[in-house]
Each structure stands twice: as structure tokens, then as C-alpha cells.
Design a protein around this nucleic acid. Structure first.
Length: 335
DNA sequence: AAGTGCATCAACCGCACCTCT
DNA sequence: CAGAGGTGCGGTTGATGCACT
């Protein structure tokens, strides 16, 4: 017996979302919160598939999303994480605040993959810098070995971080900047700004829409959320109390592990430039928060999820010794 | 200026997983 | 335990814009 489609194909609108649809969707979510997507088209009157609504929200309308212009640090992170995790874009996105898996996937497929290919082909690209701060071209084998070493270092650090005698700091929501800078300690993060910045994000979108009337494609992309930006403060995410107060924190679990900075330090990155964007502070993206704490799963906590994830990762790989890594012929086939 | 090819990215599709009954 | 429904994820597509000729 075949499964019925998530939505009947007839009467379901496809294609780009209009600002009006965005407004409707955002208003609804504002009122009811994300989730129960099945009910969204019914309750809003949108002629959209529930999946389409969810996608639109998570990839575009959701507050706290940073779009375009990947920084060099983000680029490096993506490359490292892709090597570590493979094409698990959602997982990768969880380490890149503000970025959606779709965004990262697109960026990888359209840009990074090609550059890496070029690199592999022997041509020098700036990506060579990822593994060579001196910006010198490095032979493939060399940078791959270097990658392997980085991976090993990351794992080692994580192992230390997760070891019983190394306590993770689980800061108060507003205290997340005051974390150990110990290389091995994994910085917990709060999902804070994600939703906290929602109003700002939406305001930005709105600005764009104002500048580009709805008949313009770009306008239809962003904007929308006009009348709702202020009310995001009551979004159920408590963006108002915002000053970074995690909205997801309703359950009192703000102890997610932020690996991004761990990776940064592990790989010698400079800090991601959150400071350049006052809206941002290091934290998990909503994506990450979703990964680590499903809103619909009361039992799970931010604290638990990343640990199990990391533990699994470590356990899966503790068999791979450093020597294995460095002598494996230089291929990042860890999984 | 017009035509063509390429790049980008939002959105769709299908599968897998999870939860509930 | 099994089946159904809901959600999430990754791969892929298609529309659009841009660059080049």
C-alpha cells in the first residue's frame, strides 16, 4: 500500500514564494511557532505543500540567517567539515552559525567543489591556503596529509574535551562569551541570537523589499515579513528579551556545544568575524539548535545531543589512530 | 545590441528516520 | 510489533542573472 503524498499534487502551488505568502507564513509561525508543518497550509490557506512551507521557513524566512558572502573562515570550516562529515550538510550547517544546510550545500556544489577539483588537478587555488598559511602551493598528498592531521587533532581535542575529568562549561545564557579558551574545551553555545536576531533579520529583509518593490524578483525573495518584524519579539522565542537570550531556551537547556570555535582554534583559524556583525554572537544556528535540540522533543536537550553525536563520532573513529591517518595514503576516508 | 553559455540559488523530489497509535 | 503519518535531509532541477563573444 503506497504512501500518500505529503500533499496532493493538485492545487498545490510551486515555484518562488511571493512576499504575500511569506507574510502569511511568518505570521502564522509567529503565532504558533515552527512545527506541525502539516497544519500550516490548512491553517494559513496557503496553497503550498507543508514541506515547501517548512523549507521556506528554514532556508529563508527563519530569523538569524546570514546569506551570501561566505567568509574565508567559513569556507575553511566547510572544507574541513566536509572532509570530516561528508555531505552531511545539516551537520555541517550546525557548526556554521547563521548558515543553512541548503546554502552550504549550494556553496559547496557550485564553488568549493570546483575549486578543490582544480586544486587536485594541480592548479593552485586560494584554497591551497586552507592548509597552507604561507599561501604556497602544496602538493595534493601533502595537504591531504595535513588535513588528516587536522582531523586527528580535532578528534584528540574532542576526546579530551569529552573526557570525564574535563568539565565542559555550561554557561548561563548570557555568559557564553566567557568561555574557556582552552583548545580542548568545547565551547558551549546558546542558540541565542538565532531567533534573537530575528527582528533584525526580518527588518533587513523588509528593507530590501521596500527598496525593491514586490514585482521585482529580488523583492519576492526577501522582505516580506513586514508587519511582523516587531512582533517577532513575542515570537515565542523571546527575541525581545533578546539581548542574546536564547529563545530556544524555553526548556532551560542552553548547553549546546559549539564546535565551530573549537575547529577554529584547532585548525588555527582566526575567529569567525562575528564582531563584524553586531547581530551575531557565537552561537548555534537555529539549524544547529534543531539538530541538537528538536523543539518537538521535550526529552532531548541541547546538552545531550551534541555529546551523543560527538561521542558517536569519536567512538566510531577511535580505531583510527594517528598513524593510521597519516599513513593511510593521504586520503581522507575516515568514514 | 543580441545571442549563447555558465553560475548561482531557491525550491522540489524522494527517501529515511522518528513518533505515535 | 507493525503501520501510518510527520518531519528532516541530501540530491537534483529549473529559473534567473551575469559574463562573454
Amino acid at each position: 500500500m503506497g504512501r500518500p503524498p505529503c500533499c496532493d499534487k493538485e492545487g498545490v502551488k510551486k515555484g518562488p514564494w511571493t512576499p504575500e505568502e511569506d507574510i502569511i507564513l511568518v505570521s502564522y509561525i509567529q503565532e504558533h511557532g515552527p512545527g506541525n508543518w502539516r497544519a500550516v497550509p490548512t491553517n494559513t490557506g496557503l496553497s503550498r505543500c507543508s514541506k515547501s512551507c517548512r523549507l521556506r521557513w528554514t532556508n529563508y524566512l527563519r530569523p538569524g540567517i546570514k546569506r551570501g558572502n561566505f567568509t574565508e573562515q567559513e569556507e575553511k570550516m566547510i572544507i574541513h567539515l566536509q572532509a570530516l562529515l561528508g555531505n552531511r550538510w545539516a551537520a555541517i550547517a550546525s557548526y556554521l552559525p547563521q548558515r543553512t544546510d541548503n546554502d552550504i550545500k549550494n556553496y559547496w556544489n557550485t564553488y568549493l567543489k570546483k575549486r578543490l577539483k582544480k586544486l587536485e588537478a594541480g592548479s593552485e587555488g586560494s584554497l591551497g591556503n586552507v592548509y597552507n598559511s604561507a599561501s604556497k602551493p602544496i602538493p595534493r598528498g601533502q595537504w591531504e596529509r595535513r588535513l588528516q592531521t587536522d582531523i586527528h587533532m580535532a578528534k584528540k581535542a574532542l576526546t579530551e574535551a569529552l573526557s570525564p575529568n574535563k568539565t565542559l562549561s555550561l554557561p548561563e545564557p548570557n555568559n557564553n562569551n566567557n568561555l574557556s579558551n582552552d583548545l580542548g574545551s568545547i565551547k558551549p553555545t546558546t542558540p541565542s541570537l538565532s531567533y534573537a536576531s530575528s527582528a533584525d533579520n526580518i527588518a533587513r529583509l523588509l528593507k530590501g523589499w521596500m527598496k525593491n518593490p514586490p514585482n521585482n524578483k529580488a523583492a519576492s525573495k526577501s522582505n516580506s515579513v513586514v508587519s511582523t518584524q516587531n512582533s517577532f519579539n513575542n515570537f515565542g522565542y523571546d527575541t525581545a528579551s533578546s539581548e542574546g537570550t536564547p529563545s530556544f531556551d524555553a526548556k532551560g537547556n542552553t548547553t549546546s556545544v559549539e564546535l565551530s570555535e573549537t575547529f577554529e582554534s584547532l585548525f588555527g583559524y582566526e575567529s569567525l568575524d562575528y564582531s563584524s556583525n553586531s547581530e551575531f554572537s557565537p552561537s548555534l544556528s537555529p539549524e544547529a539548535s534543531t539538530l541538537f535540540q528538536d523543539e518537538s522533543k521535550p526529552g532531548s536537550t541541547i546538552a545531550e545531543m551534541p555529546f551523543s553525536l560527538l561521542e558517536k563520532w569519536l567512538l566510531d573513529d577511535t580505531k583510527i589512530s594517528c598513524s593510521d591517518i597519516t599513513s593511510s595514503g593521504g586520503h581522507a576516508t575516515l568514514f
